[in-house]
Each structure stands twice: as structure tokens, then as C-alpha cells.
Simulated scan of single mutants.
Amino acid sequence: MQQFIGTGVALVTPFNEDKSIDFDGLERLVNYQIDNGVNYLVVLGTTGEPATLTNEEKEAVKQKIIAVNNGRLPLVLGIGGNNTAAVVEEIKNTDLTNFDGILSVSPYYNKPTQEGIYQHFNAVASATTKPIILYNVPGRTSSNMLPSTVIRLANDFENVVAVKEAKGDIVQAMEIIKSAPKDFLVISGDDMIALPMVLAGGAGVISVIGEGLPSEFSSMIQLGLDGKVKEAYELHYKVADSIDLIFEEGNPAGIKSLLQKKGICLDEVRLPLIKASEQLQTRISDFIDHL
């Protein structure tokens, strides 16, 4: 699964002032990633606000990204939820021809047991031959997929190839790295500890700040993968404040504010999300001015 090593970015969905999809902004965003060293793109992950997109809009976003990317970078599609049958049905009814893998979040709100999480991903992995990247993000799902469950899935299903680990716990990540099958990829879902995870044996990151600062962040991750620790940490500390800034008032409000500063798209989001406050926008703008 070499295509999932390095820096993936979770693409936002740009909106116009009237909240319609800004397809020109989406084109600029995709090209900005490709031109600045990102390794792969994640389409309609939670950062892309799929919960507030219609099925028609999601399809339009997918087709636009496929067309703009034009085979230049691997694509990962977000398909997940807390209704296992519905997730399986969506996988079976989605044309996955242009996608290299699926990112699937652990079921949220229901708070399943570890056995429930295992059986959910049993059904997901059995519904397709495409590579599956598990996504553990307890801060959003209200349940933690334990290392033992991740490792069990990795051993039992050939197409469960990676986990996006976003608990923010380096010890948990190291436990998976230590015990998982040799070729299983542990991908950071937390930008602030992405470099330490890589240096501990992780495969890279699926990043939010990476789409705003793709050159700096992808260079940092590559330096980490190459074992160039000092140079990697110099870049880490250069961008670290921006990570705190973009998540201060929620995602993707913060990263959209940064992307607006960069002239890529507007900072519009859909309710129940709201735009970053003027104070935060000013601080993000000042950070970019001094980077």
C-alpha cells in the first residue's frame, strides 16, 4: 500500500456565499495540493462536510475531483457511518473505479462494544475488494477502537490495510505499530503528533493543516520518513501554532479561514457549523503573513 505512505489531505468542500458548491475553488484546491508535494487526496472525509451535502452534491464533488486530479494522485473516498447496513449498501452501489481505497470511520453515537466495532468492519471489508483504511477518532465518535480490535481486523481481513489513528495518544499508536502485521500502515489523524508517530514507525498522516500548508507539511513528513529528525522538527515547530489555530473553533472552519487567506476558496461553511470568528481569522492571517 505504498500509495498511502506520506501525506494525504482531507479535502474541504468549498462553498460560495450562497452556500452552493464552489467548483472553481475546488479545482484550485486540488491543484494546490498536487503542485505542492502532497501524496494522496481524501475525498468526502468528515472535513469535507458530507453530512450537509445532498447525494447529488456528493456525486458532483467526486466527479470534479476525479476530473481535476486526472490520475495524478491516488484518491481515497470517505464512506462510513453508524448504520452498518447503510454503509455496506453505499459501498456496493458506489462506482469505486477511480478510487484507490476507502476511509471508513468507526461508528459514532451508538457507542458499540469492541465486538460491535469488529463486526461492523467485518461487514464493510466483506462488501468490497478495495483497500480499507479504518478511522479511529474517539473525540467525534464517543468510542475508542482499541489496538486489539485494530490488530484483529488487520489480521483477519486482507483488504484492511491501514488505520487513521486520531485519538491523539502516541502510546496507543505505538501499540498498534508494534503489534500489527508488518505491512499494515498506521497513519496519524492528528496533525500535532503526526511527526512523532512517523518517527515511531508510522506511515504518515491524513492531514487538515496539510491542505493549507501542503509544501511545508508534506516536506516535514517526508523528512521524518527519511529519518532526518532535526530537519523534520524544524518544520514541525515552524507550523505547529497553525495547527492549534485551525482547530480552535472547530473543523473545517479554521482551515477554510486559512484557505481564504491563501486565495483558494472562501471560508463559508454550512450550518450547524459557522465561520471562524473575526478574531481567529485575524490571528490565522497574521500567522500566514509571518510564516
Rank of each mutant, 00 (worst) to 15 (best):
G81D: 11
G263Y: 10
K111P: 00
K62L: 09
L280C: 07
F247K: 00
G8S: 10
L235H: 07
N70P: 00
Q260Y: 06
G210V: 08
N39Y: 01
G6N: 08
E59T: 14
V9K: 04
E268V: 14
Q3W: 14
S285C: 04
K275C: 13
V124P: 03
Y233L: 12
V160W: 07
K182T: 14
L223P: 01
G80V: 06
I187E: 11
T7H: 10
F247A: 05
K58L: 04
Y109L: 14
K228M: 13
V171F: 12
T52Y: 11
T46H: 09
Y109I: 14
K261N: 14
R270A: 12
G202A: 10
I132C: 12
V30R: 04
R72G: 09
L77Y: 03
E49M: 13
I66D: 10
S106H: 02
E89L: 04
E278A: 15
A276P: 01
K256G: 04
Y109A: 12
E27T: 15
N69F: 04
I209E: 03
E57T: 03
I170E: 04
G116I: 09
A240K: 05
P74W: 13
E115L: 05
V186H: 07
R270P: 06
K167D: 15
V68S: 05
D183E: 15
I117G: 02
L258K: 10
K164R: 07
L44V: 02
F4M: 02
I187S: 10
V229G: 02
V61Q: 03
E59Q: 14
H290Y: 10
E158L: 09
D100L: 02
D226K: 13
S285E: 13
K92C: 11
A60I: 01
F157M: 07
Q2M: 12
D286N: 15
T47L: 01
V30Y: 07
K262P: 06
E115W: 00
Y135Q: 11
T129C: 00
L103F: 05
K64I: 04
D289M: 09
V239Q: 06
A123T: 02
S285W: 03
N55C: 03
A10L: 07
F157G: 11
I102Q: 05
G204N: 09
A125I: 05
V208A: 05
S218H: 09
I288P: 01
V239I: 15
N122K: 15
E249R: 01
K275A: 14
L146G: 00
G101W: 02
D226Y: 03
L213E: 04
V150A: 05
A51H: 10
G189I: 08
E268Y: 13
V88M: 07
D22Q: 09
S142I: 13
K164H: 09
I132N: 11
L73E: 07
Q260F: 04
F23W: 06
T129M: 00
Y118I: 01
I187A: 09
P196T: 06
G168N: 04
L223S: 05
K261E: 15
L266S: 14
P272H: 11
T128D: 14
G224L: 06
E234L: 03
N16S: 06
D156S: 07
L73D: 03
G78H: 10
Q114N: 14
E27W: 02
P196C: 06
D226V: 02
G116D: 10
I243Y: 09
F217R: 08
